[in-house]
Each structure stands twice: as structure tokens, then as C-alpha cells.
Simulated scan of single mutants.
Amino acid sequence: MAVDLGAHLASVRDQLRVVPTPRRVRAARGGTPVLDSTDVLVVWEPRRVVAQYAVPESDMLVPLVPTVLPPPPVDLPPVLLPSHPFGWHLSPGQALAVRVDGETFDAAFRPDDPDLGGRVVVDWAPFDWTEEDQSVTGHPHDPFHRIDTVRSDRHVVVRVGDTVLADSRRPVALLETSLPLRWYLPREDVATEHLVPSDSRTVCAYKGWATYHSLPPELGGVADVAWSYDEPLRDASEVPGFLCFDDSKVTVES
């Protein structure tokens, strides 16, 4: 019987999952080195969809101090996102505080699982990270995650009610592992007069920083219906400034 790999990976999400990476990984805080390691595991804690790095304690360049964190809430969502606190640990282990230049962060965790060899998982958010000599943002790069951009001649139309927000026959399809197909459209094919800038910004480790647009009150005032990567990273280099619409908020026909 064939195995659906997507379903299989989702079926083990409640477990502690690890894979070695050959990358040299470093982290710093305000210019102060925090860790430097070539003996790194990519680690997904139970229910987490985004990984963290785990390194030997000997590769930490600042003190670690055992600490006690409150247990995670009993009504946890089935999937934990980067926005959920790092301190919600669902596998046995020791929470650790990281001390950097007089500041203390509850930003490390040593799982009891022997397969981690005593490595500590380090929270991404408080620090600046590099893989080899390249700065990275958002979260560690997932070795099982891929992005493809494919130019297409499909006819993509975006509507809200009777109003056409975009009409393009030269979209770019962005296919990202485990995520829906997204259509990125040249600005010339978008009725930008129907959009207003939003203050929202998000970051993707593969695509970069996204800026958002909303609908004006006369079209429902829906927030953040479209986004763009104006200075994209390499994986989104085919869609600089292109607009992509959230098909849960507007109708996208293709």
C-alpha cells in the first residue's frame, strides 16, 4: 500500500522529531556571541510545525542556568506555531535560562531523550542567527521544506463581490511544502486603487519580509487580503513586488 508522505509526517507530529544538519550555526545577542556549533540537530518538539536548533551545551558561549517554567495550558491547540511561547514544552526535560550581558532569557531546553545526546534546544526569537556566514531570519531552515516558483499562463481572477481586484494571464505559481498553492500577480494586473496599505508585517525564513494590503471600508474593510515581498529572499526571487491574495478572504479563480 502506498504511503502518503504528507499524512505520514503529520501523523508523527506529537513526537519529538530530529534530523542532523551539516550547517555551522551561530547565534548572537547585540553582537555578543551566544553559540557556535557544527554539531547541530534540527528539532521539532511535539506539536511544533517549525523547528529549532539544538546544540551541545559545550558549544554555548554564555551561561545556562536551570529554571522552572509553568506547565503549558491544558487546552493547547493541536498545532503549535512560532507565535506560541517557546516555554510550552511537551516532552520531558530541563528548562534553562540563558544569560547574555546581564540579561536573562528563558530560551533553552534540554530534552531528556537520549537521542539528543544532552543537546540544548535554543529559542530563535531573542537572538540573531547565521547559517555558515549567511544571516537567516524567521526560523531555522527545514530540510524537508521546499519552495518552487513556476511561471504560468493560467487566467487568475480575484474578486470581492462584484468587484474585480486582479485579472492576470501571467501569474507565478508559488508551491511551498505543506501549504496551499499561491498565485503571485504582477502589480500591473492588480486594481491597486481598491487596496490600502496595512501596518502588518510577517517574516518567512525562505521568502523574507511581507507587507500587507487591506480592503477599504466601501469594499468591506477586510484586513490583510493581500501581501507582497518587495525585497524577497532567494526562494521568492521570481515574485519581487508581486501581489498574492488570501483566498480565505476573497475569491481567487484560476
Rank of each mutant, 00 (worst) to 15 (best):
P197F: 12
T192P: 00
L165C: 04
P33D: 13
V190D: 13
S254W: 04
A236H: 03
P111E: 10
V156E: 01
L81H: 10
P114E: 15
P92Q: 12
G208M: 08
R187Y: 08
R146D: 13
S168T: 12
T67L: 03
A125E: 15
P111Y: 04
D148R: 07
R154T: 00
L81A: 11
D4C: 04
L195C: 09
V68P: 01
V40G: 10
G220E: 00
D224G: 06
W44N: 05
Q52W: 12
K207L: 10
V50T: 14
L90H: 03
L96W: 10
T32H: 12
P197C: 10
R47T: 04
V157I: 11
V43G: 06
S228M: 06
D101P: 00
R17I: 05
G220V: 02
P73A: 15
R159Q: 07
L90E: 12
D153E: 12
D101G: 13
D75I: 02
D235T: 05
L80D: 07
P217E: 15
R182V: 10
T104P: 08
G118L: 06
S152D: 08
T202A: 10
D162G: 09
L174I: 03
P33F: 13
Y184Q: 01
A223W: 05
E103V: 05
F105G: 07
R170V: 15
P72R: 05
W44G: 09
L76P: 09
R24L: 00
R47A: 15
R169G: 14
H155Y: 11
R154S: 07
L61F: 05
T251H: 11
S152I: 02
W183L: 01
A205L: 00
R234F: 13
V49L: 08
A2E: 13
T149W: 00
D133T: 08
K249E: 10
L35R: 02
D115V: 15
R170A: 15
V122D: 09
D101T: 07
R24I: 00
L90R: 12
E131G: 00
V172F: 02
C244T: 11
D113I: 00
A97W: 01
V65T: 06
P33W: 09
L69G: 01
W183C: 08
A2R: 09
V68G: 05
V42N: 07
R17M: 04
V239Q: 10
F144H: 09
P92W: 13
R169I: 12
R234Q: 14
V50L: 09
G6K: 02
P63V: 06
T137C: 02
P197D: 14
R151F: 11
R201D: 11
G30A: 09
E238D: 13
D4V: 05
L175V: 13
T163W: 04
Q52A: 14
R154L: 01
V100M: 04
Y53I: 05
A173W: 00
V203T: 15
H194C: 14
D128H: 10
V19C: 11
P180Y: 14
R159C: 08
L61T: 01
E45T: 10
L215Q: 06
V50P: 00
S248M: 03
A97C: 05
Y212T: 08
S254C: 08
H139R: 11
H141F: 02
L181G: 01
P77N: 07
V160P: 00
S200E: 15
V203I: 14
E176V: 07
T67I: 07
L64K: 05
L215Y: 04
T21P: 02
Y206C: 02
G241C: 04
H155V: 08
F109Q: 03
S11F: 00
T163L: 01
D4M: 03
